[in-house]
Simulated assay, not measured.
Amino acid sequence: MQVTMIDEAEYAETMTRVVLPALEQCRDEGWFDPGTAEKAAGLEPLAGGALDGDDSHAGKLHYLCYDAAKFDAIREQGATATFRGAIVISHGFTEFAEKYDELVWYFLLAGYSVCVLDHRGHGKSARNVDNHCMVWIDDWHRYVVDLAAFAQTIGQQYAAGMPLNLFCHSMGGGIGAAVLERYPTLFDKAVLSAPMIAPATGMPLGVARVLVGVLCKLGFSRKRVFGQSDFTPEFSMKGNEGASQARERWYFKLRCEHPEYQTYCAAFEWVRQALKLSHAVLNPAACAEVETPILLFQSGRDIWVLNKPQNRFIQMVKDGGSEAHIVRFPESRHEIFSMPNSTFKPYLEQILKFYDDPMIASASY
């Protein structure tokens, strides 16, 4: 379908005046208890406090869901008014559900309900370290079990018997890839956007695994990674040159206004678990288990995740007999959805074509 993009010159005004009021009318907020699913997977449930201070949210994961039927009732210009199913969004490292408001808006216009889970340690979900700027996880399997359980319950509820699709970015893409391997019939289609099949560590992954493992054993598990810092309210485009400044300023504004969105750095244990996740995802036997058709978007100027492991993952999935394709944006930064409209628009149109097309196999991907 043809997509009318938000004018970057009027981005903040349009988000404030049009997008957010519409999303508010079709949004449901809730807290998902992953305890039962984690216990079934052999994981000891973690309590973890919520930054909102509400004890009833302890150990729970925050989510936002958007109902396509309620959205259609608003009669926004450009809405398809045809229900196509639901999309579960798995966000990236240090991100949060509301960062995806613009993408949610486009998905709703296209006829999809949307469910966004704040991963543990992110957004309003439970945390297990005192520093709210730092992300820590004890076991990467927890991310995978949580996302799968969320999709099996809340996601399926919003899909209402129609297709349930997955959209992942970065860390969320690594988690999503592991979910596709372990729950091969859960999703109908999956988009992996610059997925963390392997993180960029500045050194060979094997060396990084050994080094971080030693540091965690020496007591650095809950310590901030050397060279990283807490969030500071000083806007900069450093590292995001070429991205849409209007979008970057919007995300920054959200972080400044909400302490729970100021996740900004990694604990050593998070890095250790990210590397373990990568090793598991790239297991050929695991890749052969994938049944869900995959469309992977690759950023040519990515400094956060590695491209070659993405290529290996897709090839192994194809070798296992499943449908998998790569679309490369050579000039894009890591967050393709944060790029100017000239990049974001064709990216979004290919995502919607992939989700909408009943005949997946196509030379256009």
Results as ranks from 00 to 15, higher is better:
N165M: 10
F32V: 08
C133L: 00
F252N: 14
F337Q: 14
F167V: 07
I89K: 11
L296S: 07
T201N: 14
Y365R: 14
R182N: 03
E95H: 05
V145C: 11
L108V: 04
R249W: 11
E257D: 15
I89D: 12
F252T: 10
W136G: 01
Y63G: 03
Y158S: 12
G320V: 09
Q77M: 04
R142S: 13
G49Q: 15
L282W: 12
W270D: 03
A194P: 02
A22K: 10
G320M: 08
T153V: 00
E8P: 02
I74P: 02
E24V: 00
A243V: 01
E241I: 00
W250G: 04
V144D: 13
G30D: 05
Q245L: 00
S278E: 12
H119V: 04
D101P: 00
F268L: 11
F32W: 13
I294N: 06
D7G: 06
V271D: 03
G202N: 05
A73P: 03
E29F: 07
A47S: 08
A148D: 09
M162Y: 13
V116A: 02
G321N: 11
I74V: 09
R75M: 06
F150D: 14
R272L: 10
M5N: 10
I74R: 14
G85R: 11
A280P: 04
A79E: 06
G227H: 10
G176N: 09
Y183S: 05
Y106I: 01
G49H: 15
G78V: 02
S244V: 08
S125Q: 10
T232N: 07
V212A: 11
N311R: 08
S56E: 15
Y100A: 09
F32E: 15
T343A: 06
R333L: 04
L296Y: 10
G53F: 11
Y264I: 00
F150C: 11
L348G: 13
P259E: 13
H141R: 15
V88W: 11
F329M: 07
Y63M: 04
N131Q: 06
